[in-house]
Amino acid sequence: MKSPLVVEPLFYIGPVPITQPVVATWVIMAVMVLFSILLSRHLKQRPGRTQAVMELITGALDHQIEDVVQSDPAPYRVLIGTIFLFVLIANWSGMLPGVEPPTAHLETDAALALLVFAATLYHGVRSNGLVGYLKTFAEPTWIMIPLNLVEQITRTFSLIIRLFGNVMSGVFVIGIMLSLAGLLVPIPLMALDLLTGAVQAYIFAILGCVFIGAAVSEGRDTASQERSPS
């Protein structure tokens, strides 16, 4: 049986091997960019049907982000929304025949999780300043510094493994069912895969939001505590 941890290269551009997940990622990116350009080209004050649907999705995203971060969702909308839509489309792309979801391979998930990690650092430093952000690692006492550092790494790692494990196990189970039973039998499992894919995309986005929100608000709490001597 094919190992889920190894990816075979499809073709080579010069010395660089290009694998199937990379091609799938490029196609998804192209589709997303194309759709957003097409849909946002004729924005009107009185929205038509497609624009109303898009505004509904954006509004729902904004609402979720605002609930988690407890502040204006505008700085996080682009990153979190794009990650959510990309992971959702990537998870569901496995339903197309011949396509394996790119999120079923470790490398794509690692890239996404590193994006979230970088965004956590960026927003933490931007809202608290470098010193203020570094100070949040010594909360509540300086003894917690190593634990806080380890937490940063383990939660990024668990973000990778969670998405990879869920999507990959779905693909794997469908493959095993196909080799055992064949026609029409894996359909309930594929329906379950749709549900898992949506839930995992939601969880990935919300967890990224929680991490960024924690990095932003931890500093805010300590700053307000310093300002008001109790």
Partner: peptide, 20 residues
Amino acid sequence: FVGLAMIETMAIYCLVVALL
């Protein structure tokens, strides 16, 4: 949902260890 994802990660870790 977020909590369930956290708990489920433990099972996923075991799955990844098994695959390794």
